[in-house]
Each structure stands twice: as structure tokens, then as C-alpha cells.
Computed example of a mutant assay.
Amino acid sequence: MSRWMRAAADTGLAMLVGILVGIAMSVATEPVLGSRPPDAIAYGLAAVIGGVLLFRRRSPLGVLLLTAACLLLYYGLEYPGITPAVPLALALYTAASGGLLVWSLGVAALFVVLGLTIRPLHLGEPILPVLTDMTAQAGLLLAVVLLGETMRSRRVRLAKAGERLALVEAGREREAARRAAEERLRIAGDIHDVLSHTITGMTIQAALADEMLDDRPADARTALRAIRTAAREATIELRSALGLLRADDGETPPRVPAPGLGQVGELTERARSAGLEATVIVKGEARRLPPAVDLAAFRVVQESVTNTIRHANAGTVQITLAYEPDALEVEVVDDGRPREGRDRRDERPEARGTSGYGLSGMGERASSLGGTLTAAPLPGGGFSVLVRLPIGEPA
């Protein structure tokens, strides 16, 4: 309801109450002799009772007390008695709906008690009719007060429901933001894995092509074709990953199959082309893995092989895939030899890609799936990366 409509409604109610109070005064009868008929003062009090209701929203307690005072003054001037429900109803309702329940009940009880004492004792009315009449008036006043309290409670409940709804909506927004951040981190990890592995392979192939260009042009062309193939595959994967980041703009991201352990053979071929003797050992019965586990296992192998090529000064790398009833173990072991002037046992994991998305990224992948990752130099030389991922019971 707009401000002007509310003001018009309040004005109409104030005029209606004033008119009803004036009518009640004009038709009131007094069983006891000596009361005087309503005059200008009485109708003036009716106008005041109606007029103060214009301010009931701004000062509900003040309006209630002023209305009660006017009604007590009317009774004190010995005008014919009228029911207190008509002049008090709207003031009581406004005060109760504004949270002034105690004041509303107190004012209502005051007039009930005055009626039960003054009418039999001072006016000499029979007790039974007085008791019957005041019981009815007390019920009416109490109903008005309870209606105001009910409306106040309803507003409070609606406000609390709105607050809870706002909290739920804010929680949903925070959860959506958290999921989006996690997805961006996952995509960043995938981009790192693709670029790191591809660029390392391309660098090695380019070096081989440069060395063999004069003496063995056919082998140089083979290396160049390998570079072109790796670049094309990396472009497809990067386009897919970046397409996910653009999906919020309404674009449909390109969809390519997620890599998995089925592509380990391609990794070993690239490792061999880089001069490594790469082997794959499968223990247990290979079976279809959950997509998240399959991708994580592949990324661990990819990152480990890339680190071996870049940092290990190794001649061999062995990839072991062990399928257990409820888990998959992936181990990548190389025979990395110490570089000149360094003891292999002194090499720290920091040299094996822990910065950025290296070993730390592999560890995060494993922990996100409830798995574990161990990476450390071997006592006799070499380096081992072992990850264990739960996959549940086989179907």
C-alpha cells in the first residue's frame, strides 16, 4: 500500500470511529437519574477520540492513553454510559500490533474493572446484568488485543522467514562461488598439465630435429611431425578447457573426451622419443574406472613422466598400474642419475615440480578423491611417485 493510500485509509478510519462514538453517545441511556445529556463537550470528546487516531502509527501508546483519558473524562462528567469497545478498539489494536501488549491489556482491564465496580456501587445497577454485560465487553476488548498481537506475530514470522530465505540464498551464492572457484582451479591444473607435458615433449623433439636435420633428414621430419601432432592435441585440450571458462558468456564449450589411463601408451611413446626407456606394468585385472579417478591417475602419470624428462637426467621410467579390489595404485619410478656436482640423494622434491601445479597439484588431485600421494627419492638412486586412489568394489 502506498503512502497516500495509507493516509487516506487512516483518515477514513478516524472519521468513522469519531462518528460511531458520537452516535453511541446520542443513543446512550442511563438507568440512573442525574446524568446529563450529551452536549458540545461530549461530542468534542468524540471528535478528539477520532482525531487522535490519525497519529496511531506514529505514536500508538500516546494515542491509546489519550483515548482512554478522553473516555474516562466522558464518564467522569456523568454523561450517559457507552461501551468502551467502540472508542478503544482501534487504539487497542494498533498498540497491540505495535508490540505494546502489556499496555493494551492493562487499559482494557482498567475499563472492565471500573465497570464491574462503579456500575453496581455508584450507579446501583443489579450485579448480575452488570457482570453479564462486562463479561461480553471484556471478551470483545480481549479479542481486539489478541487480533493485534496475532498480526504483530505474523509480521515477525514473515520477517524472520525473509531473513532465513536471504541467508539461504546467500549460502547458495557462496556455494556456487566456491564450486566455481574449485572448477577454475581444476581447469588451471589441467591447463598446466597439458602445457607442461606438451611443451617439454616439443622442446625435446625440436632439439632432436635440429641435431638430425643435416645427417638424418628423415628422422628430423619424424620429430617435426611429432611436434605438429603434439601441438594439435594440446590445442584441442586447451580449447576444451578454455571453452568451459567461456561457458558463462552463453557460448557452447567444445567437448572432447577427458583423457584417461587408456592414453598411457601415448605418454610412453613420447617418453621413448625423448630418449627414455619407458615401460608399463599392469597388475591385477584392468577394469573401467570412475571418470574422476581415471583422469586423476592419468594426470599423475603425465606429470611424473614430464618431470622425469625435464629434471631427472634419467634413462628409464617404469609405470605400474595396480588394480586392487577397492583401489588403484599408480607408481612412476625412474632411475634418475645425479647431475654433475650433485648427489642424487640430496635432490629435494622442489626440483621435481612442487612449485605451481607439480607434486602439490598431484597431491591435491589425490586428496580430493580421498586418496594419498607419496613422492620421494629412492635410496639407491632414482625417484618414485606413488598414488593410491579409492575406486570402490568392482561391479
Rank of each mutant, 00 (worst) to 15 (best):
R164W: 13
T235D: 15
L33W: 01
A177P: 03
P394Y: 00
T67P: 01
F383Q: 07
T117L: 14
T235H: 15
P338D: 10
R287D: 05
Q205W: 13
A8G: 10
L276H: 05
T252H: 08
A24H: 09
T83D: 15
I118F: 12
F111V: 04
Y74C: 04
L72C: 06
A375E: 04
A91K: 09
M134L: 11
A278C: 05
G148Y: 03
L146H: 02
G382T: 06
V300F: 09
T135R: 13
P31E: 01
V293G: 00
D39M: 09
V256G: 06
G12N: 06
T235G: 15
S367I: 10
P37M: 13
P38K: 03
A286Y: 07
A170D: 15
R365P: 01
P325E: 05
S367L: 09
A9E: 12
S196F: 14
I319E: 05
D335A: 09
E173P: 06
T252V: 15
A89F: 06
V317W: 02
L53Q: 05
S153T: 13
S97V: 09
A42I: 04
A241S: 15
L128N: 05
V256E: 14
L146T: 09
G363H: 02
A218L: 13
A47S: 10
V63P: 01
E303V: 00
A176W: 10
G44I: 01
G380V: 08
C70S: 12
G341W: 05
F383N: 06
T150C: 10
L369N: 00
R178G: 03
V102C: 06
L123Y: 14
T268E: 03
H311S: 03
R3S: 11
L13Y: 02
I227L: 07
A366C: 08
T94D: 15
R56P: 02
S97T: 12
A170I: 00
G34A: 08
R339N: 05
E30H: 11
P84W: 11
S153F: 11
V256N: 11
V317F: 02
I23C: 02
L110I: 04
A47P: 00
R56I: 12
V107L: 01
E303C: 08
F298V: 03
